[in-house]
Design a binder for these strands. Structure first.
Lengths: 209, 209
DNA sequence: AAAGTAAGTAATTAATTGCTAACTAGTGTA
DNA sequence: TACACTAGTTAGCAATTAATTACTTACTTT
């Protein structure tokens, strides 16, 4: 004898969990472009999608799972973009250049990404999130170190170069760029600045007089 | 006729507000070495000091004021250390080296500092905190750019060098180091790595063949 | 058409957090 | 000594937040 209650629900389009998951990840990265990733709430993500907050938990078991998926997304997309850019080049030096600029272009298109990485890097050492970032960066370093060593073998750069240290400088030069654009809130200027920075980096690899 | 309540207070030593302020700032920086600065709560700061949480607000009007003071502390201490290091050198190149390593030494002694800066950099563009960080970095860049330009005038480096871009690379090379130590949770290794990175940076300024 | 599954809503919860207020107690000075 | 001042405590408020739950409804399958 229960009286059925008229629903006032304005139910959202029903999309597959898979679709929602990618939507959630993309939303997180979009939101991270404008605010500190640590301050993004599940409510905010839901609002951006046009969801209720509870609906998010139909597609991820926890907030942490969302961040892990976002880092996976970055690894999948950024790394594969750079790796394929490196392959379509004639020499290791050209490969380095291709990696450098594909990273810059990626970040310009998705400014939230470096903020996400910076943020998760600050997590405690034993967290799952930090482990994921570590994995991503290790893959990145391997790609760059390989190219630098190959360039040394070809004689394109100083044969006695310390490829590990040079990789840190490579990553650092990009980070310097990213930091500058964050300080100045001027992402569009990144590419032009990158064109000045990369040649400087290259010179550091050259035979010293 | 109110009955006076026996107090169970185990009152902490009464220190001057000035003393407490520096104590709070140092605690924040110490805590930032081990966790994301954004997750540091007033309760945590108070616990570390041996305070109650309410007592903190006797010395700072708000949490934001604590962060602003911390950034001021960094500017005061890091910048002045680097500036004085630069002064006690024979040449601009030596000055750059002194700045580089005094920064590294500072960060090794206080690993919380770069995490603080990274974190506050992610605040919205219009926040007071971000403005403070901007000011700090501007002063930093001015110091480095000046040295590079002086080196160019002396002929110690390529006269056609872009000092602005080189400054970004200088800062980036330090950031790369810092990031590496954060990824690996291995601050002690920083100095040795720095000794490999700085010569690489220097080569990027040299006359190209 | 009936049944089952999965994605949505709405409401609520427990915990946390920044901050405040009322009160208490050392400290220095008139 | 008296008294103002300042730093401490305790308690609690208002807001926020991740997560859960009971219920509803759309789509798929048989």
């Amino acid at each position: 004898m229960s009286i059925p209650v008229k629903s006032k629900m304005a139910t959202q389009a029903r999309l597959s969990s898979e679709t929602r998951q990618t939507q959630i990840i993309e939303t997180v990265i979009a939101l991270a472009a404008r605010q500190s990733p640590g301050q993004i709430t599940t409510q905010e993500i839901a609002n951006a999608i046009g969801f209720t907050q509870g609906a998010l938990f139909r597609h991820f078991p926890s907030k942490e799972a969302v961040w892990l998926a976002a880092i996976d997304w970055v690894e999948e997309n950024l790394l594969s973009a750079m790796e394929s850019a490196a392959k379509n080049t004639a020499s290791p030096i050209d490969g380095l250049q291709a990696v450098f600029f594909s990273h810059i272009d990626f970040v310009m298109a998705r400014p939230g990404v470096p903020r996400l990485i910076f943020n998760e890097l600050q997590q405690p050492a034993d967290s799952a999130i930090k482990a994921a970032v570590r994995k991503l960066l290790q893959r990145y370093r391997k790609l760059v170190t390989g190219l630098i060593e190959a360039a040394a073998v070809c004689g394109e750069v100083d044969r006695s170069i310390d490829a590990i240290a040079a990789t840190t400088l490579f990553l650092g030069s990009i980070q310097g760029l990213v930091m500058q654009s964050m300080v100045a809130d001027n992402v569009p200027a990144m590419h032009k600045t990158a064109e000045k920075i990369f040649p400087l980096f290259l010179r550091s690899l050259k035979e010293s007089a």
